[in-house]
Every structure is written in C-alpha cells, then in structure tokens.
C-alpha cells in the first residue's frame, strides 16, 4: 500500500504548480486552469485521507467538490467569453475597468 505521505506530497506538488500558474500567467483561460489544478490538489488530499481513514464520506465530498468546480468553471468561462466579445482579448492585465 502506498503511504499517505506520498499522496500528500503529490497534492502539494500539484498545488504549487497551480500557484505558480496563478502568479505568472496573464491569459484568462490559463488562470482558470491553474485554479482548477489547485482545487484538484485539495481533492487528492480528500481522497487520500478518506482512503487511509477508511471513511467513505471524504470520497463523496470529492464528488461534490468536482461538481462545484464544474459550476465555477462554467461561470468563469462564460465571463471570459463575454469579455472576449467586448474587448477581443482575455489578457487579465488589461481588464482593469473595475479598478478604482
């Protein structure tokens, strides 16, 4: 059986990649992808603990959180789409209309 620590390190790596993406990327779609990576790192954690504590509810939670991620991605992409329609680009640096 794979030790729990391996799963946690894997999820930390995935999370860090997502974090790096958030910090460096300027393209809206890539940003959303990075956010998804971070969310899925949390999901890996949930499943790992669930399996190692022999408690199914963690895996059910993961299902829920994946479904919520789908909702979030749908809204995110819809917003990006309407921004693209308005401005012909999705570079987040230039979307500063709401800046004070």
């Amino acid at each position: 059986m794979i030790p729990l620590t391996y799963y946690l390190i894997l999820s930390t790596i995935v999370f860090t990649i997502g974090l790096y993406g958030i910090m460096t990327q300027r393209n809206g779609v890539r940003l959303l992808m990075s956010v998804e990576l971070m969310l899925n790192a949390a999901n890996i954690n949930l499943v790992a603990f669930s399996s190692h504590n022999n408690d199914m509810s963690g895996q059910v939670f993961t299902l829920f959180s994946i479904a919520l991620a789908a909702a979030e991605a749908a809204i995110g992409f819809a917003i990006l789409l309407s921004i693209y329609r308005m401005r012909d680009m999705i570079d987040v640096d230039n979307i500063n209309l709401l800046r004070w």
Binding site: L19, I22, M23, T24, R26, V92, D93, N96
Partner: peptide
C-alpha cells in the same frame, strides 16, 4: 500595480 496576481504572490 492593481494586478491581483502580484498581490497574491505577496500574500503567499
């Protein structure tokens, strides 16, 4: 800068 990402970097 108003760029959220730099703020996020600082927060992390």
């Amino acid at each position: 800068t108003g760029v959220v990402q730099s703020y996020a970097t600082a927060v992390i």
